[in-house]
Nucleic acid binder design. Structure first.
Length: 574
RNA sequence: GGCGGCGUAGCCAAGUGGCAAGGCAGAGGUCUGCAAAACCUCCACCGGCGGUUCGAUUCCGCCCGCCGCCUCCA
């Protein structure tokens, strides 16, 4: 089965193909940068990051673009609230200027950045915060991050073109798109103009009398007062700022070409934003403009109110601090992207409890392999892998044998399930189940007690039907290393990163720098002391002085070190 | 009012026209000085009522409940 994805445009799972062989062009609607990223954004962008990683796993080169909406009424409003700038007369209410609490919130989120003084600065500050949070969440860098304000000329040109083609009209210096001029309007969201009850949401405050159809939307809006403005060169609409929908049409096609493969954003963008983008773009670019529309669902707080006044706001940074980036990304993977992801501290904690079964095995393998006699510093076991990194591309091409050695068949089975799950509309929960089964089978096969530097006979099942295949002997180190790489490579697809320069240098190169190991490195100076305590405890155990051995274990536990006894001796972890 | 989605064990969550993955929690067991970890075993008839079918949790209809969208929104 090849990759199939659910395309909002057709409401069906479709075979995924790229317009250009091996290259996938993706445009993702990014943030309006007026406030720091929240955990809902974290879910959405983690999904897009996973999607990109899976396409790369399938050997696609991914050209991904994300935008920042850095010109928007909300930004101006926020900046006005904070600093009393960029305000038109109406919104500059003196009582709210520089509200200390809210300013400190922003400054806290943007710690270390220069103080913002206006909407442009506020936007830049939030851009930096966004990038920082993405790094924390292990969201890989996009090929390009575009700002709406860098594409204003293109937006002016597109608006002019749409006027010229009869799709837009000018009223009092404001440019509206005429939805009646585009027969396909509504094809993405599956609704017709007639079906809409205008103002049903109770949120329409705008005077719609100037529009030909209430569903018409703004392409260009005149600026007033100190609001940011651009000159257009058109007498009917001489100055102003672009409407929200217009920018994405321009940025995506400028960066990726008039047609591209995937356009995405949260479900909330489906209507009206993406619907409007299609209406703007197809008259100029031709239809179909975009091949696949994907809409990941929202994170759901399950009735829990998060608010600053309650003091229970959890930021993406908090999440990573509290649970670790691996557990966060794993948690995001345990629900399908088209379903709401219920979130609460309890839920992520129970997800973490399950994930530890996997992470524990990785720690065990790392422990064994790091001290293997036949694995030299920085030099993996010979003959086990053949990495090809095409230096002309920014994308790594990892081609390793992840199913080498004693546990090879389990790994093969796992990889098949993993692939089948993700090929079926990116079924990450199914992939997660494959991990659990794989790890369970590895434990069951006794991987915990396999020593390094030994020889292993092939499992009996390896003989195949009729025993035609000759018995094989594997290096235990190579076998364990292959499992380690299989696990870390496939977790990597989900955004769960385990960089290890010794055991998997090729993968480590593509992971974010390992920053979370400060705990272990902080312990390094005390290693000799810890070892001495462990040895003292072992002696006490040999002497059957269990009171003493338990005391030492409690002592270490108090310092945050868990000691476990195994047939191979004690093992400790943080 | 319109459009769309969902309802699977205490919790989270896949899935299939033919005896319901996985995880958390729970119970029992193996191992262990004790723990821990791991492994083994146990734990659901899939919101309700009809219909189609040899057979439906899976298809259709109705009902009940929950949620989202209908020009702020990842």
């Amino acid at each position: 089965m090849a990759l199939h994805v659910y395309n909002t445009l057709t409401r069906r799972k479709e075979l995924f193909t790229a317009a250009q062989p091996n290259v996938v062009r993706i445009y993702t609607c990014g943030l309006t940068v007026y406030a720091p990223m929240h955990i809902g954004h974290a879910r959405t962008y983690s999904f897009w990051d996973f999607f990109r990683r899976y396409l790369e796993y399938l050997n696609y080169h991914v050209l991904s673009v994300i935008n920042y909406t850095d010109i928007d009424d909300r930004i101006m409003q926020k900046a006005a609230e904070l600093w009393g700038t960029d305000s038109d007369a109406g919104s500059a209410r003196p009582g709210e200027l520089g509200s200390p609490q809210r300013q400190s919130d922003v400054n806290q989120a943007a710690e270390g950045l220069p103080e913002a003084v206006g909407s442009v600065d506020l936007a830049e500050k939030m851009v930096a915060v966004f990038r920082r949070d993405c790094r924390r969440l292990k969201i890989k860098d996009y090929a390009a991050y575009t700002r709406a304000t860098d594409f204003v000329q293109g937006q002016i040109d597109l608006a002019a073109k749409l006027i010229e083609l009869g799709h837009a009209y000018v009223v009092d210096g404001e440019v509206f798109y005429s939805v009646d001029s585009f027969p396909g309007y509504g094809k993405l969201s599956g609704r017709t103009i007639e079906e809409q009850e205008v103002g049903a949401s109770g949120r329409v405050t705008e005077d719609v009398s100037r529009k030909r159809n209430p569903a018409d939307f703004t392409l260009w809006k005149p600026s007033e007062g100190k609001q940011p403005r651009w000159e257009t060169g058109y007498p009917d609409w001489p100055q102003g700022r672009p409407g929200w929908h217009l920018e994405c049409s321009v940025m995506s096609t400028t960066m990726l070409g008039s047609h591209f493969d995937v356009h995405g954003g949260g479900v909330d963008n489906m209507f009206p934003h993406h619907e409007n983008e299609i209406a703007q773009s197809e008259p100029v670019c031709g239809a179909p403009w975009v091949r696949y529309w994907l809409h990941p669902e929202h994170l759901d707080l399950r009735g829990v109110k998060m608010s600053k006044s309650l003091g229970n706001v959890i930021s993406p940074g908090d999440l990573v601090n509290d649970y670790g980036d691996q557990a966060v990304r794993w948690f995001f993977s345990t629900t399908h992207y088209r379903s709401k992801l219920p979130f609460s501290p309890d839920l992520i904690a129970s997800s973490l409890a399950g994930f530890e079964k996997i992470s524990r095995l990785l720690k065990i393998l790392e422990g064994k392999l790091s001290s293997a006699p036949d694995i030299e510093q920085g030099v993996p076991v010979a003959g086990l892998y053949a990495s090809q990194r095409d230096e002309t591309q920014s994308v790594p091409r990892l081609r390793h044998y992840y199913n080498y050695g004693h546990f090879g068949e389990l790994s093969t089975k796992f990889m098949q399930r993993f692939r089948e799950a993700l090929d079926d509309d990116l079924n990450t929960p199914q992939a997660a189940a494959a991990f659990f089964d794989y790890v369970g089978e590895l434990y069951s096969a006794g991987i915990e007690s396999v020593p390094v530097g030994a020889s292993l006979d092939s499992p009996s099942g390896d003989a195949g039907e009729g025993g035609s295949r000759p018995a094989t002997t594997y290096s235990s180190t190579a076998s364990l290393l292959s499992v380690y790489r299989c696990l870390t490579r496939h977790l990597y697809v989900l955004g769960v990163e385990y960089p290890n320069e010794l055991l998997y240098p090729q993968l480590a190169m593509d992971c974010f720098p390992a920053g979370g190991a400060e705990g272990e490195s902080a312990l390094a100076p005390h290693k000799a002391f810890i070892d001495a305590l462990l040895e003292a405890r072992q002696q006490a155990r040999r002497d059957k002085d269990f009171a003493k051995s338990d005391m030492i274990r409690d002592l270490l536990a108090g310092a945050g070190l868990q000691v476990e006894d195994t047939p191979q001796g004690p093992r400790w972890s943080l």
